[in-house]
Simulated assay, not measured.
Amino acid sequence: MTAHPPLEQRRAAELMTRDLLTIAASESVLMAWELMCKAGVHHLPVTDDEGGFVGVVDAQTITATWSAAAPQEARRPVTSLLPSRPPPAVGPSSTVREAARAMLESGGDHVAVTDEHGVLVGLITARDLIGALAGAERDKAPRSGGMPSLYRIEPVLPRTIPAHAARTEPPPG
């Protein structure tokens, strides 16, 4: 077992999740929920069309704002759930203490880890902190040249409309 410095002195880069599933800012709240359910995650970083970091939507916010009586609300952009203030963020060399303080100050259970240009490189959640405190850190992907793995799932539509779907009038019969 590798000896670590006290948790509050460790660096954000040691605890952050690097392999992140992201969602485009133009996607719907329903798409965000579907992605979270399929991937088994509670936080989705939101990116703009150029891949820039916009914020993080979490499962708690989606469930708190969900309205079964208004299904059109599920189609609104995921950005409608983001707070108006900038998302909390720390640098990879920030201490875990600084990351925890940023979470507390924002009132959230996560903090983005961004580089000096504001590019998202990881995410630390309260679960990551508790896991590290308990000594039950999950396996982290090995470093691969410094860039995080950001995954973006987009809907796939057929290239052509099938003949049976293109009909505008009922078949003869």
Rank of each mutant, 00 (worst) to 15 (best):
D115Q: 09
L120M: 11
P92W: 06
P87K: 10
L129Q: 10
P92I: 04
V113G: 04
D139V: 00
A136S: 08
A89R: 06
V121Y: 04
T125H: 13
P87M: 14
V119H: 14
V119D: 13
V121L: 11
A136C: 07
A126V: 04
R97L: 09
G135E: 15
T114N: 02
R101Q: 12
A99M: 08
V90P: 02
E116Q: 03
P88E: 05
H110A: 10
T114W: 02
S106E: 15
A102P: 00
L120H: 13
A100N: 09
R101V: 08
K140V: 09
I124W: 14
S106R: 12
G107I: 10
V111F: 11
R127I: 12
L129K: 07
L104Q: 14
P88Y: 08
G135M: 11
M103A: 14
A99V: 03
G122Q: 12
D109T: 09
A126H: 12
P86E: 15
V111G: 04
L120Y: 15
M103Y: 13
I124P: 03
R127V: 09
R97G: 06
R127Q: 10
V90H: 05
D128L: 01
P88Q: 14
T95W: 07
T114R: 11
E116P: 00
G135A: 12
A100L: 04
E116Y: 04
K140S: 12
H117P: 01
L120I: 04
A102T: 05
G107R: 11
A100T: 03
R101M: 13
L123F: 10
R101A: 11
G107H: 11
G108S: 14
L129R: 07
I130H: 05
M103G: 13
H117W: 05
L104W: 14
D128R: 01
L123W: 13
G131Y: 01
R85W: 14
G122A: 06
T95S: 10
D128N: 06
V111H: 11
K140T: 09
E116F: 00
A132E: 02
I124Y: 13
S93C: 00
D115L: 07
V113H: 14
G118N: 03
A112S: 13
L120N: 06
D115R: 10
E98L: 06
D128F: 00
V111K: 13
D109V: 02
A112Q: 08
P88G: 10
D115P: 06
E137Q: 05
L123C: 07
H117T: 07
D128P: 00
K140M: 09
I130R: 10
R97N: 08
V119P: 01
A112Y: 07
S106M: 13
G122N: 12
T95N: 03
S94G: 01
R85T: 14
A132G: 01
A100P: 09
A126Q: 13
A132K: 03
I124H: 02
A134E: 13
T95Y: 04
